[in-house]
Computed example of a mutant assay.
Amino acid sequence: MPICPIRRKNNIPKERVRMTVNKEMALQSGTNRWEILDATTLKLVAVALMFLNHIHQMFVHVGAPVWLTMLGRPVFPIFLFVSAESFYHTHNKKKYLQRLLLASWGMTLFTVALQGVLPNADVVLMNNAFGTFFIAVFYMMLWDILVDGIHKKKPARIAKAVLCGFLPVLGTIPLFFVAGLSANQNIPFPVIKALITAAMLVPNILTIEGGVAMAALGVGFYIFRKHRIVQIILLLILSAVVYLTGDHIQWMMCFAAVPLALYNGERGKGMKNFFYLFYPLHIGVLYIVSTLCFG
């Protein structure tokens, strides 16, 4: 709706008229002046902090300071928040989910191969945020199916959402199967290692980085995506629970509330391929440097 022009009387300063118009425009647009970060900028902030965090991971054995990983605690919530936004706005939700699954498989195979070629007793690569994003987005999709089934009163869709929700739980079965086989000394270790790798390729709730709580936080971000305050409250609650469990570093993910509060709802430049490539590449480079120079 166009803004009606404001007639200025002779005794009203021009600046006051201009401020009144700007205020009405801000109210009609629904944005606040402090909401200055788009989705791309949020991801760039997370990338910078993630890089510092992984420097600590790769070089902690040679004295990398703990404040590097402290700065990296907000990274996961920021990426989960952006994943929820991206999934909501994507034109092809199934393709988005498939892309995350392929990235998760690629990351698992990449880290296994890298550690096989360059073993490093001081660094264990268990990095696969793509797996966490996949599980979170998978449940976001099931949430949409569930809500659609309830609204349209379709029991079949409701049942589909509920039953499919058990798939990441059933995905843990291969892990337990391989764990049982590992006790058999007649099976060569290379075979066990290959079976473990294959089992890790099956999406499940046990092997995702950050654990089930992080995936649940991502789903919460999606469910309450129109209620920023609720999203931030969920983050603060999880941070408080983590702190009460005795983890005195991970709770610092609560500081992700600051960039989330500054989000303006815009996509930005995107740079999708950059983020998919930067994650494995920077981990690989840091691991290689750590192994060759300090291993």
Rank of each mutant, 00 (worst) to 15 (best):
P5K: 09
P5E: 10
P5D: 06
I6M: 03
I6V: 10
R7N: 09
R8W: 00
K9W: 01
K9A: 10
N10T: 07
N10Y: 00
N11E: 12
N11T: 09
I12F: 00
K14Q: 10
K14S: 10
K14Y: 05
K14P: 08
E15S: 13
R16F: 06
V17A: 08
V17M: 09
R18T: 13
M19P: 05
T20Y: 08
V21N: 08
V21L: 12
V21E: 14
N22C: 15
N22Q: 14
K23V: 15
K23F: 10
E24R: 09
E24W: 11
M25I: 15
M25P: 04
M25T: 10
A26D: 15
A26M: 15
L27Q: 08
S29G: 08
S29D: 12
S29T: 11
G30P: 01
G30H: 12
T31M: 13
N32Q: 14
N32T: 13
N32C: 14
E35M: 11
E35H: 01
I36F: 09
I36M: 04
I36A: 05
L37A: 02
T40W: 02
T40R: 03
T40V: 12
T40E: 08
T41G: 11
L42C: 14
L42K: 07
L42H: 07
K43S: 08
K43C: 05
L44E: 04
A46L: 06
A46K: 10
A48P: 00
M50Y: 01
M50S: 04
F51W: 10
F51C: 11
F51D: 07
L52T: 01
L52S: 06
L52I: 12
L52C: 06
N53F: 13
N53Q: 14
H54L: 05
I55M: 07
I55H: 03
I55A: 10
H56S: 04
F59D: 07
V60P: 03
